[in-house]
């Protein structure tokens, strides 16, 4: 049996939708947490409220392929940056762990006498210096490696920005694909692909074009997707001269004609 009237449950509905003023919401939330009737009403309506957000799920033109590529690349890059910090932290911890026993040994030996301790300290210092140098070398190597990864990332980002600028140029024509799209400017095209599976060693994706009036496909660039499964492929022809574009999996050295069922074939009409 309910212990509250309808007006009270109306207010619980406001809490579920998140439209109560902060102080009122805080007080009612405390009550809901301990009142079984209110919790039941709240649970039912909060889930329903949360699902209202689905109304704005961004589809089609509202969130085009290019924007989605760009945002996904940005998010994945941020994730990788977060991961890249870990090796340095691990290495630093390793150094602290190797120093600690040496300090302990040094203290113990000091109690044996000044002269003997001096010899031991000298010896331990030598070992310690060697160990620190090794740690330092390792840290420098990690830092250099990360700097080179960052530089490569920056180059890739600049290249991506350049291509995206071309893709979003006014007047660019777009041809949809199940895994991306082909964007054509006045004198060239770019195939933008996502969710491309990585291929085994010795295999690459190869782009193909069929010129208008031609019966055979012309071999194009070989490419592999990046770690996020994204690939951009340049086609140095105007869309007006091309009847169809395709991509297939081929030997890493490339083929003169497709040797496997194409990943996709898109006619440009």
């Amino acid at each position: 049996m309910n212990t509250h009237d309808d007006e009270h449950f109306d207010t619980v509905a406001l809490l579920a939708l998140g439209v109560l003023p902060a102080r009122e919401a805080e007080e009612l939330a405390k009550h809901v947490a301990i009142c079984a009737d209110c919790r039941l009403v709240y649970a039912s309506l909060r889930l329903t409220s949360d699902l209202v957000g689905y109304q704005e799920e961004a589809l089609g033109e509202k969130f085009d392929e290019v924007s989605r590529f760009r945002l996904k690349t940005r998010v994945l890059k941020a994730i990788r940056s977060a991961e890249a910090i870990e090796p340095i932290a691990a290495s630093s911890n390793g150094r602290a762990a190797t120093q600690s026993p040496e300090v302990a040994v040094r203290r113990r030996y000091l109690s044996w006498g000044l002269a003997f301790a001096a010899i031991m300290i000298a010896a331990i210092d030598t070992i310690s210096n060697t160990s620190l140098r090794a740690d330092n070398d390792r840290l420098v190597a990690v830092a250099n490696q990360q700097a080179s990864v960052a530089a490569a990332d920056a180059t890739q980002a600049r290249e991506l920005d350049r291509r995206l600028a071309e893709l979003v140029a006014p007047g660019a024509k777009r041809f949809g694909l199940s895994r991306g799209e082909i964007v054509a400017s006045s004198d060239r095209m770019v195939i933008a692909l996502r969710n491309l599976p990585a291929l085994p060693a010795g295999k690459k994706y190869q782009a193909w074009t069929r010129k208008r009036g031609a019966k055979k496909m012309t071999p194009g660039a070989l490419f592999s997707p990046d770690a996020a499964g994204i690939a951009f492929v340049d086609i140095p022809y105007a869309a007006t001269s091309i009847a169809a574009v395709a991509v297939s999996v081929e030997p890493a050295s490339g083929s003169k004609a497709p040797t496997s069922k194409p990943t996709f074939v898109r006619t440009l009409t």
Binding site: L15, A16, L17, G18, V19, L20, P21, A22, A25, A29, V32, A33, R39, Y42, A43, S44, R46, L47, S49, D50
Partner: peptide, 17 residues
């Protein structure tokens, strides 16, 4: 934008979910 949906009220909605 004062209103906010609380994240921390314990609810039992396994069936609903």
């Amino acid at each position: 934008g004062e209103g906010e949906i609380p994240l921390d009220i314990p609810i039992d909605g396994a069936l609903d979910e």
